Amino acid sequence: MNAIADRYRRHADAFELRIAAVRPEQWADQSPCAAWNARDVVDHIVTMHQVMLRPVDRGPSPAPSVKVDPLGAFRAARADVEAVLDDPALAGADCDTPTGPMSVERHIDLVVSDDLVLHGWDLARATGQDETIPADDVARLWASTTAIPAELMQKYRTPGAFGPGIEVFGPEVKVPEGASLQDRLLGFIGRDPSH
């Protein structure tokens, strides 16, 4: 296995555990993303997994809907992405992305692996779970997000810039002086860690 596949699996494991810990009555609870409840967070993650299949001309495998079985839907989406990562020809294929050409596995790493971490926090916050993001992930994501050029960051913060209904980051939320790196990261991508 390579580092990208390993990172994906680690993040998927953590997200799956968070889904499994959600009590049935919590699925309608509000998430930190204003337009989403807890179930919507999982639906977004499943949808983004399906988007990662398009560059290799694959569609999602038969699976339950997120409305009926969020855990089953995620597990099926995860299996589809893992099958791509485990096939060197598919993982190494070139694809076009909004930020330029890259390999399919790199695209998965930048989009889905990072989404699992950040939206894992959303799901944890919505459902009262431990919100701690592993320190190495916080440091890696802080370095990568703060390195995004200002012009591209403006696009990331513009709703609909990458398609209808797509908002990558919200407006930056100021956090107190001396805040933890996790809180600074969350504020930078538009989350309010104090609420």
Rank of each mutant, 00 (worst) to 15 (best):
P32D: 02
P32H: 02
F188D: 05
P60D: 06
D109K: 07
A5C: 08
G128T: 00
D115S: 14
P193S: 03
F15I: 01
R18M: 05
A73D: 00
A35R: 15
L110Q: 11
N2F: 00
D94E: 14
R9F: 07
A161S: 13
I148F: 12
A79S: 13
P171C: 04
E25S: 12
V81L: 12
G170N: 01
A5Q: 13
D192M: 00
R75G: 08
L141M: 08
P60M: 12
D115N: 15
R10T: 11
D183L: 07
F162K: 04
E167L: 09
D94I: 05
S31Q: 01
E151M: 11
H49Y: 12
R106F: 08
W27M: 04
I166H: 15
A28T: 11
E105S: 13
L152C: 12
R9P: 07
S144P: 07
H49V: 01
P193G: 05
A89G: 08
Q30N: 09
A34T: 11
P98I: 06
A79V: 04
V81H: 10
F74M: 13
G163K: 10
A14D: 15
T127K: 01
A179Y: 02
T158G: 07
L123K: 09
A63P: 06
E167Y: 02
M102L: 14
A38T: 00
V111G: 06
P24I: 11
D80K: 12
W36F: 12
T99V: 13
L116F: 09
N37Q: 13
A126C: 04
P70F: 00
A147M: 00
L71Y: 08
G187Q: 05
A91R: 03
A77Y: 05
P60L: 10
D40R: 13
P164N: 13
R39D: 03
V168R: 12
L110H: 08
W27G: 03
V84L: 10
P88I: 01
R75S: 08
R9V: 06
M48D: 09
A91G: 09
L85G: 11
L186N: 02
Q182P: 05
R10K: 13
P98Y: 10
E177T: 03
R78K: 10
D192I: 00
M48T: 14
F162P: 03
G170K: 00
W121H: 06
V138K: 01
A20I: 00
G190V: 02
S31G: 04
G165P: 02
Y8N: 03
P88K: 01
P101N: 08
Q182Y: 04
R9I: 05
E16T: 15
L53A: 00
V173T: 10
R10P: 09
I45G: 11
L123M: 10
D115C: 11
T145H: 13
D115E: 15
S65T: 11
T47N: 15
R39V: 01
L85C: 11
A12V: 06
V112P: 13
E16A: 15
P134S: 09
D57R: 15
D80P: 14
A35V: 07
R18A: 08
P101M: 07
V117S: 06
P60C: 10
E16M: 09
S61A: 08
G120L: 03
L110P: 02
R125K: 14
E151W: 09
S113P: 03
V81I: 13
L185Q: 03
T132W: 10
V138I: 04
I189D: 03
G92Q: 14
K174F: 05
M52W: 12
